[in-house]
Write a protein that binds this DNA or RNA. Structure first.
Length: 574
RNA sequence: CGGGAUGUAGCGCAGCUUGGUAGCGCACCUCGCUUGGGACGAGGGGGUCGCACGUUCAAAUCGUGUCAUCCCGACCA
């Protein structure tokens, strides 16, 4: 490709609406252009990158035995009613009506569709196992799209679905996919961590996420991991062993004491001269529009997804101050934000974290302003009927596998694998006949990779102040050849023949034939992120060109033949 | 959902307070000059100032509404 013909416009400045690196870089370097919130045009450079990621995914999925197909973007309501998700998926599901007023949606994922395909096409155990996948645009009407391609409303995803006769078969395929994913991300030049995760709205029991580790805001997930063993988990699923702490308040009897102006845990600790580990904290959440009280040791935080799962809900948020006051008044108390407690909250579901079990003679709110009950005990002063792990792990707590302190980092989720079991096959009556002629529901798994997110994550992981440093395997082009002065016949001649030689050897090369000053070409090359650059300049009089590696910054003066060979070898090694 | 901010040329912005028929930098086109890290000079093309209604002789500018975009928040007791 000649640079003069390449459809790209680099900008001098970062667009004002971008805040994360990948969004800034991709927009400024002319890869993407926003059409509307969370929806982007993939310009030619971007499309080349996306196709490369897709092809790597395709090759590895095929190698793993999966078969590609393509399902529709528009889906009928009826199938979603069969799975029960039409009601529960919420506003993220983009719904629309056709001219006959029939309700449809834009597919955010394809469990319903693939299950209907399997239901119709897989009749016998002899046809199993099967793994079907597609690469396609998805639409999710996010509450707040941001971070460019990392959290778009429309994005490209690879989604695969496996069908097995039993759990053992599913386990095997799950491992098979985990291996395929490792190869895929490695080939894309990404370091990923496979972490345990909650299975979320998609449902099912076991799941793992593949995270690109980053230390920026672009990583929207907290990942807890152990450096001494292989334990790692998303914060919504992580567990830990607590460091030992004082959980006995030491009070000799239960009594109500005045605790003026102690609306926060810190104020209460200071006033009573006690550690927060002997305070029982009461938090009000609204789960599926109904209040739920969560009890937890006050030095710990509640993990909302865990709480939601414990309750069995599908939507959760912390209650607002007015809602809390309303609840207190409804139960016959005066509004006293900061002093709420479980006592007298009849009819409200109360769930206590497991940390509460060990607490003795503790301090707890009693729904009265400026007062707390000290020396409280379970079964007497606080009645708990439901315990669960609803605690957010904190760095420094101990690894559940080996007992060493856990660390935390941020991660970008680029892939996930789920064991669905019969979550969809049962309600949708997707069954096959087993050896005994008996109908059985498929045992399913599903496996996703965010193609566009993977590309953006690669930029997050590989860039510097000057621009993108694409891994060779997913770079839009492998190399740019820069003749410093296109008026110089010798330079152009060498550049042109280098260009042709590289093309002939299967290298994707760009010849920067623009009549621009060298600085402009270098800036653009760095911004766009060509993995290699060959500069043909003054030193051509000595028969030398400059060969430069974008990733390392290493450059050397070599003959055109040697420079070409470097690139050809690198590309062949892919 | 709540709060805040912003919509003026492809991108980044000024002009708005104090109404008078739109400007700067980059990008783009032409010519000259220049050619190793975003040169310089001259000339040029491109905008119903987000949209609607209103006030006014006159609206980018004032008012109301609306749409869009971005950020923050959604109370940890």
């Amino acid at each position: 490709m000649k640079m003069s013909k390449l459809f790209v416009q680099t900008l001098r400045e970062f667009p004002s609406d971008a805040e994360v690196v990948s969004h800034k870089m991709l927009a400024r370097a002319g890869y993407i252009r926003k059409l509307t919130s969370g929806v982007y045009n993939y310009l030619p450079l971007m499309w080349r990158v996306l196709k490369k990621v897709e092809n790597i995914v395709r090759e590895e999925m095929d190698r793993a035995g999966a078969q590609e197909l393509l399902m529709p973007f528009v889906q009928p309501k009826e199938l979603w009613e069969q799975s029960g998700r039409w009601e529960v998926y919420g506003r993220e599901l983009m719904r629309l009506k056709d001219r006959h007023n029939r309700e449809m949606c834009l597919g955010p994922t394809h469990e319903e569709i693939i299950t209907s395909i399997a239901r119709d096409g897989l009749k016998s155990y002899k046809q199993l196992p099967v793994n079907l996948y597609q690469i396609q645009s998805k639409f999710r009407d996010e509450v707040r799209p941001r971070f460019g391609l990392l959290r778009g409303r429309e994005f490209i995803m690879k989604d695969a679905y496996s069908f097995d006769t039993d759990e053992a078969g599913l386990d095997k395929e799950y491992q098979n996919m985990a291996q395929a994913y490792k190869r895929i991300f490695e080939r894309c030049g990404l370091d990923t961590k496979m972490v345990q995760s909650d299975s979320g709205a998609i449902g099912g029991s076991v799941s793992h996420e593949f995270m690109v580790i980053t230390d920026t805001d672009a990583g929207e997930n907290d990942v807890f991991y152990c450096e001494d063993c292989d334990y790692s988990a998303n914060s919504n699923h992580a567990i830990s062993t607590l460091v030992e702490a004082v959980t006995d308040g030491g009070y000799e009897k239960a009594e109500i004491v005045d605790t003026p102006n102690t609306k926060t845990i810190e104020e209460l600790c200071e006033f009573l001269k006690i550690p927060s580990t002997v305070i029982l904290k009461s938090l009000v959440y609204i789960v599926d529009k109904k209040p739920v009280i969560a009890l937890i040791r006050a030095d710990k935080e509640v993990e909302e997804t865990k709480l939601m799962n414990a309750v069995g809900g599908i939507d959760i948020r912390i209650a607002t101050a007015p809602e809390i006051e309303e609840l207190m008044i409804e139960k016959g108390f005066n509004a006293a934000k900061g002093f709420i407690g479980p006592k007298g909250m009849d009819g409200i579901r109360i769930i206590a974290d497991n940390t509460v079990k060990d607490m003795k003679n503790f301090v707890v709110g009693i729904n009265e302003a400026d007062k707390h009950l000290v020396g409280a005990n379970l079964g007497k002063d606080v009645i708990v009927e439901e315990y669960a792990d609803i605690r957010l792990v904190q760095a420094g707590e101990l690894c559940p596998q080996c007992g060493k302190p856990l660390k935390v980092t941020r991660g970008i989720e680029v892939g996930n694998i789920f064991k669905l079991g019969t979550k969809y096959s049962k309600p949708m009556n997707a069954v096959y006949l087993d050896k005994n002629g008996k109908t059985q529901p498929f045992v399913m798994g599903c496996y996703g990779i965010g193609i566009s997110r993977t590309a953006a994550a690669a930029v997050e992981a590989h860039h510097d102040e000057f621009g993108i440093k694409w891994p060779l395997a997913i770079a839009p082009y492998h190399v740019v050849i820069v003749p410093v002065n296109i008026q110089d016949e010798k330079q152009m001649e060498v550049a042109q023949s280098l260009y042709e030689k590289l093309l002939a050897n299967g290298v994707e090369a760009v010849l920067d034939d623009r009549d621009e000053r060298a600085g402009v070409k270098f800036k653009d090359a760095d911004l766009i992120g060509f993995p290699y650059r060959i500069t043909v300049g003054k030193t051509i009089s000595e028969g030398l060109v400059e060969y430069k590696v974008r990733e390392s910054g290493v450059q050397e003066k070599v003959t055109p033949e040697v420079a070409a060979q470097h690139v050809i070898d690198a590309v062949k090694a892919l």
